[in-house]
């Protein structure tokens, strides 16, 4: 049923975009997971409870191939570490 709604709408919602091949984003794979892990480790507040917890979860997810979720956790860990640093 949804195609019935989206068909006329997609025709109306055409957005002019560059017609070249999509640009490849590099922050969605195992390599970037590792970059974030190293960055978190270098952070002065990486051992605080929340950054450490989130970092562990992120590493675990990345190790299981769930890079998107793992990268999100590691980023939240880094934000938490930064916040700790600013707060403390």
């Amino acid at each position: 049923m949804h195609w019935l709604f989206s068909l006329p709408v997609s025709a109306l919602a055409i957005i002019p975009i560059q017609a070249e091949r999509p640009l490849r984003v590099t922050t969605d794979g195992a390599e970037y997971c590792q970059t974030l892990v190293l960055r978190l480790a270098a952070s002065p507040n990486a051992t605080a409870e929340l950054p450490r917890f989130l970092g562990e979860e992120g590493r675990h997810l990345c190790a299981n191939g769930r890079y998107r979720a793992g990268i999100a956790k590691l980023r939240r860990a880094l934000r938490a570490a930064t916040a700790e640093q600013r707060g403390g």
């Binding site: 957005i15 560059q18 999509p22 490849r24 984003v25």
Partner: peptide
Amino acid sequence: NLRDWPTAIGEDGTWFRTRIQHD
């Protein structure tokens, strides 16, 4: 976090829309 510089874009100050591939 982009692997390549896009082709056929304008000079300094240009705004454009493009497609990106991730996840």
